[in-house]
Amino acid sequence: MHELIASPYEDEHLLLRPGSARALKIPYAKYTQLLRAAADGEEAPAWLVAAVKSAWGSDLTGRPVAGTVLVRAPGRFRHSRATWEINLGCDFDCEHCYLGEKKFAGLDWEGKQRLLHTVRDAGVIWFQFTGGEPLIDPDFPAAYRLANELGMQIELLSNGSRLRNDKILSLLIEHPPSKISLSVYGATAETYDALTRRRGAFNRFTEGLDKAVRAGLNIDLSLIITNRNAHEADAMRAWADRLGVPHREYANISPTIHGTAETLPSQSPEHLTQRAPFTGCPAGHTFFHVDPHGRASICKVGREHSIDLVTEGVDGLARLGGIADSLMLRTGGCSGCTLSGSCRVCRPMAKIFQEAKAPLRNYCQHGQPKELVK
């Protein structure tokens, strides 16, 4: 397995190390030098030895470029990031989950392999496994290994319940992801198990979290604040601080991706935060989302007009930018809005709020006191 990745990135070229969040910019001339050196069986050039020693503390002196550095070819388009719901199945049943009904279904292993090669060929460098719960998919270990072999920097979004499994943990220690983002649903078993609607969930999570932290994996905690666990918000923050891991908080619950509102009552009103004005995003242009069946969309919210990557391959992504632009147009209840220039949600998100008949205050300035609208 390679130790480094050299890859084009938009109009630049990067040097990366699997499992590390650090990236070094290198000139095009040095990228092409590595490409030639790998093909000709040459040793690592002096500049590479020095750069790697400084950035990651590894010594490549006398090492061949081939087998040490995976030099990736340019992608067809500008897509450098992607996220994949390997499966919607989950071992938790959280009442606030935006996925709604979580059916365990998706591609077979052959389809998953074709998808991962297509994602690589598209030029994706940063690749996120999510779900559902990705670690419960029977093909996850093989898919994770293949994504590593193809030269993608991997992030995991997980509930952490399977990190206590020695085989899963050993895989992640052998090939560490650049980050593992774990959702936290409470600070006590009573609250955690009630929110996830799974007895024993808290104990499984804490065992896996402790093992991952001791193993030195790069953990990031997402503190999910709802009306069921809001009384433990301070305790969750203190827990993250004791572990010495970074954490973020999420309290703004959205409707399901199907535009239904059963998730919204789980919000804790006093913990809702004011979103920053929406000024655009790279969805569909440099980023895309893939569902369990291999259908690519601009993001996890804007799933209309998806592209079947398994059958169409990379060529299908040529349409994604146009789809993104069309989905971002202010239509329906938002067309002609005088506050659209300072709107705090994108059009696909506003659409599912409207379909769910959610109160305006959840997503629109028109539903807020005038003194809060800026």
Rank of each mutant, 00 (worst) to 15 (best):
C364P: 01
N252E: 03
K112W: 11
E85Q: 14
A283Y: 10
I298D: 09
L34D: 03
L4M: 11
F288D: 02
K211H: 11
I352W: 05
P27A: 12
E133W: 05
K211G: 08
G75P: 00
F77H: 12
R319F: 09
I5F: 02
T256K: 08
C281T: 10
P27E: 08
L171I: 08
T130F: 01
K374I: 07
G313K: 07
S266F: 15
G151A: 05
A82D: 00
T32A: 12
L99S: 14
I173T: 08
L360I: 01
L223I: 15
H285D: 14
H2P: 13
C299F: 11
R344T: 13
R81K: 14
T311R: 15
T83F: 04
V184Q: 04
P134I: 02
I352V: 14
A105R: 13
R22G: 02
L60Q: 06
I180Q: 00
R303G: 00
P292W: 09
S181Q: 15
I307P: 01
T118K: 01
L309E: 06
R164E: 13
F77K: 02
K179P: 00
W84I: 01
L60F: 07
L157P: 01
A147K: 01
S20M: 05
G131P: 00
A251M: 03
D40P: 00
S178M: 14
A187W: 04
L35M: 13
R17K: 15
S178Q: 13
G106A: 03
M236L: 06
P141T: 04
K167S: 15
R114H: 07
R198G: 03
G19A: 09
K179Q: 12
L209P: 06
R120M: 00
G200A: 09
T338F: 08
M328K: 12
M328I: 03
Y363K: 03
I180S: 00
P138H: 05
G62K: 14
E10Q: 11
E85T: 07
L221R: 06
Q368D: 10
A39F: 04
E174I: 02
R22W: 07
W84L: 10
W56G: 00
G259W: 09
V184R: 06
L172S: 04
A318M: 13
V314G: 11
L24E: 09
E12I: 02
T83M: 11
R319A: 12
I125P: 00
H175T: 06
L34I: 04
A283Q: 11
T61W: 03
K374R: 13
N87Y: 04
Y144S: 03
L15Y: 12
G19M: 05
L217K: 03
Y363E: 00
T32H: 10
I136F: 03
L107Q: 02
L70V: 06
V119R: 10
K167W: 05
R214E: 12
Q354W: 14
S306I: 02
N227I: 02
P269V: 09
H293R: 09
A187G: 11
G62A: 10
